[in-house]
Simulated scan of single mutants.
Amino acid sequence: MKTLDIIALTLVIIGAINWGLIGFFGFDLVASLFGEMSAFSRVVYALVGIAGLYSLSFFGKRTESPRT
């Protein structure tokens, strides 16, 4: 995996965990850590969104399976 793929996947996982916390418990982890719509929390949300869009390209990638 390329470094950019790993970073994007990590950000998507962070976003998924945050949305899960919002959905199940009404708790926004990013907002509680960095402030309600502070400049840094907006950057985090933007990076997660960009990572999600970039991760769409994973659907078009082929993986090689090991030959037996």
Rank of each mutant, 00 (worst) to 15 (best):
A51D: 07
M37C: 06
L11T: 02
F59R: 07
T10N: 13
M1K: 12
L9D: 15
T63L: 11
R62C: 03
Y54P: 00
M37S: 13
R42N: 11
S57H: 00
I22Y: 07
G20D: 12
K61I: 06
R62H: 10
I50T: 02
T63Y: 01
L53A: 09
A51P: 03
L11H: 11
T68E: 14
F24T: 10
M1C: 12
I7W: 14
W19V: 09
A8F: 13
G49Q: 02
A16N: 08
A8R: 10
D5A: 11
V12Q: 06
L29Y: 15
I22C: 06
K61V: 07
F34G: 00
G60T: 10
E64A: 11
S38P: 00
G35E: 03
S41L: 04
K2E: 14
L29T: 11
S65G: 10
L47R: 02
P66D: 11
V48Y: 02
N18F: 09
G49Y: 04
L9W: 14
Y54I: 07
V30Q: 01
G26S: 02
V43E: 01
G35M: 06
V48F: 04
S65I: 10
A39T: 12
A31Y: 10
I14Y: 07
P66Q: 12
T10H: 09
T63H: 09
S38Y: 02
A31S: 15
E64H: 10
S55Q: 05
F27L: 04
R67V: 10
G15C: 03
L56K: 03
G20R: 14
W19M: 14
F24M: 11
I14W: 06
G52K: 05
V30W: 11
L4P: 00
M1W: 13
A39D: 12
A8H: 15
N18Y: 10
R42S: 03
I50F: 07
A31E: 11
R62Q: 09
L56R: 00
A16W: 11
L11Q: 05
V48S: 01
G35K: 06
L4H: 13
S55N: 01
L33W: 12
E36C: 08
E36P: 10
T3L: 15
V30E: 06
L21M: 15
D5Y: 13
I22T: 09
R42P: 00
A16V: 15
R67N: 11
S65N: 10
G26M: 03
G35H: 05
S57P: 00
L33V: 04
P66M: 11
L4I: 12
